[in-house]
Design a protein around this nucleic acid. Structure first.
Length: 607
DNA sequence: TCCGTTACGTA
DNA sequence: CGTACGTAACGGAC
């Protein structure tokens, strides 16, 4: 047995590293004496779905606040058996981003998600309930290193968590490539690995009392863990990829890119270099004016659109083709497992407002809307069809219900078009027989922009509404929806006094006092997220998880057996819909063919 | 090799 | 005084 020591704030912690089977007696004693354990794994990478072709677990670590054990499970099957035994023996397991370690445990140790999730406490969830802000927003951050720095010891965070960077340098590899090559008994690696369960254990005990009483009273801790378990099951299921379709699009986009790079090459040798483009356009005599926040000349789509020169068109088309190919189609193919599926990483609680995010091989939340161009690369199971169920007007309905605004509520109860209502308030009534107000766009832009915390400028820039119309519509909004105005003021006042607002689910959201106008948006966005989360949890209880593929903000994507698709879509939509403060948030389903994209290509699709 | 900046896709 | 994300790329800093 190897023993390492490290000092956290003058307190010595001990890391035991098992070297031979004889060491396991003491490991077993430790586990039996500690029913609540910090837990972590070290692996060869992040691609847990490739456990049948190269992905391996290397170390399994267990610990309390002052002592941990590192089992190099890769060198000894008895260590592996001991790790499995410990996972089963533990009453509670504390891990940071425990979802990853659950996937690893399932795929490499055979201990399924269903067994670990009920006793897992994830410090990322606790950290988010205490302070959801990123470090650059003035918060604690959500990564283990950031939390260690904020709550435990800055030096420790730098030394231990930064040590993998140093190790990578020593092995002369990139930081991302160190995981499979670092030697099992490299002392720095063992220290890094052995500290993680200690840090997770300590963090939980620091964070637990800081979780707001209202969050605890509303049961948010248990609720978020259940949600994380369900999204982990969605990750495990993965999404079937139509490789032939992706390959076809890749070839098409490559040809497109080459064509336009060729055109651009008369003037620049790199279409992605803003520096070269600025020089080129200036040399042609174009006067650039738009600046970036840092004061450089801007070279975005708006600027390129305004320049009447073949280079501008070539740059737009070449860069777009390259980006679409790499970001969506090649990412999907690169992430394929041995069964032709990709596994997204669903961060069930991520944004300031707790919105979920999806990263990795299916950046679903950034897929181009409007048609099925990208989504057609993702398929329902054999014999299944794709279905999408989304909430209708969720954020505006939340705004209406939360503020109890009589005008807005009346419009929703009477099933009237709220964008028309806002347009009428600003510009007068519609002609008899008209379905759409001639200035409905200004009404729509205003309704959305206000929800974002915006002003008339947002309506102009974001929705292409003339300045005068935008100003008039925004003024009319606040004069018409007095309940919304009062609610926004109430939230601002709460934020001004306390630095926080609370949502109906008991979530506490910090609001920067210099940006009080964002309080309304935080409330709405976070409440909408919680309504989606609630839907996911209720669908899970009703047995729908095997059919669920991805959450996309106000929409859930499913793979349903073809013959039962209509019935299941209807049942799922009824489970999803929710009455928030007396107002129904309706859910509506659409069924396509095999691919996700086919839903958007339906003739009568609302997309 | 890392990181800040920029651009751009979504709700 | 326009919210929240993730990804790709450049180019200067190390």
């Amino acid at each position: 047995m190897k023993v390492l020591h490290y000092t956290i704030k003058r307190q010595t912690v001990r890391i035991n590293v098992a070297e031979t089977t004889w060491d396991l007696d003491r490991f077993i004693d430790f586990i039996e004496a500690n029913p609540v354990l910090g837990f972590d794994t070290e692996t060869t990478g992040l691609d847990w779905w490739n456990s049948d072709r190269g992905f391996r677990i290397r170390l399994a670590q267990f610990g309390n606040g002052i002592e941990s054990w590192v089992l190099p499970v890769e060198i000894n099957p008895e260590f592996k058996a001991a790790a499995i035994w410990a996972l089963r023996k533990a009453r509670l397991l504390i891990a940071h981003n425990g979802t990853f370690d659950q996937h690893v445990s399932e795929r490499t140790l055979g201990v399924p998600l269903e067994e670990l999730a009920p006793k897992m406490l994830d410090t990322k969830i606790f950290a988010h309930l205490v302070d959801p802000r990123q470090v650059k927003e003035g918060g604690s951050g959500l990564k283990l290193e950031e939390l260690t720095k904020h709550y435990i010891d800055a030096t420790l965070a730098e030394e231990v968590k930064g040590s993998m960077t140093q190790i990578a340098k020593r092995y002369k590899v990139k930081k991302a490539d160190i995981w499979p090559v670092v030697k099992t008994f490299d002392p720095e690696y063992l220290l890094y690995a052995g500290m993680d369960p200690i840090l997770a254990y300590r963090l939980l005990h620091i964070l637990m009392p800081k979780v707001p009483a209202r969050s605890k009273a509303k049961g948010l801790i248990g609720w978020e863990h259940r949600l994380a378990h369900i999204t982990a099951k969605m990750e495990r299921t993965g999404y079937l990829v139509d490789s032939a379709y992706a390959e076809m699009r890749i070839a098409e986009l490559k040809a497109e890119e080459e064509k336009w790079v060729q055109v651009a090459s008369q003037w620049v040798d790199n279409v992605n270099s803003d520096k070269q483009l600025i020089e080129a356009f200036q040399s042609f005599g174009f006067k650039l004016t738009k600046k970036t926040p840092k004061g450089n000349f801007s070279m975005d789509a708006e600027v390129l659109d305004s320049i009447d020169h073949p280079l501008a068109e070539a740059v737009k088309k070449a860069t777009k083709a390259a980006k679409w190919r790499k970001t969506w189609f090649e990412a999907a193919l690169n992430g394929l497992d041995s069964e032709g599926r990709v596994h997204a990483s669903i961060n069930s609680i991520q944004a300031r407002t707790a919105r979920m995010s999806i990263s990795g091989s299916i950046a679903a939340q950034t897929f181009p809307a409007g048609d099925g161009y990208v989504r057609s690369a993702f398929l329902a199971e054999e014999g299944h069809v794709s279905a999408s169920i989304d909430f209708g007007n969720m954020e505006l309905r939340v705004m209406a219900a939360a503020s109890n605004d009589p005008v807005m509520l009346k419009a929703f109860y009477a099933d009237e078009d709220l964008h028309n209502i806002t347009a009428i308030a600003a510009f007068g009534p519609m002609e008899p027989g008209q379905k759409k107000h001639p200035k409905r766009a200004a009404g729509k832009g205003t309704n959305f922009a206000i929800g974002f915390g915006g002003t008339w400028k947002a309506v102009t820039e974001g929705f292409g509404v003339p300045e005068e119309d935008a100003k008039r519509a925004v003024d009319a909004f606040w004069e018409t929806y007095l309940g919304v105005a009062r609610f926004a003021e109430k939230l601002k006042d709460e934020a001004r006094r306390t630095g926080y607002i609370y949502t109906a689910t008991g979530r506490r959201l910090p609001v920067d006092r210099r940006r009080l106008y964002s309080a309304l948006n935080y409330y709405i966005q976070s409440t909408a997220r919680d309504i989606t989360a609630r839907a996911i949890i209720n669908l899970d209880r009703a047995g729908f998880t095997p059919y669920m593929r991805l959450p996309v903000h106000d929409e859930l994507i499913f793979s349903f057996p073809k013959e039962r698709a209509a019935e299941l879509t209807e049942r799922a939509a009824r489970i999803m819909e929710f009455t928030f403060k007396g107002l129904l948030i309706p859910a509506d389903g659409e069924i396509g063919d095999r691919s996700w994209g086919s839903i958007l290509d339906l003739e009568d699709s609302k997309h």
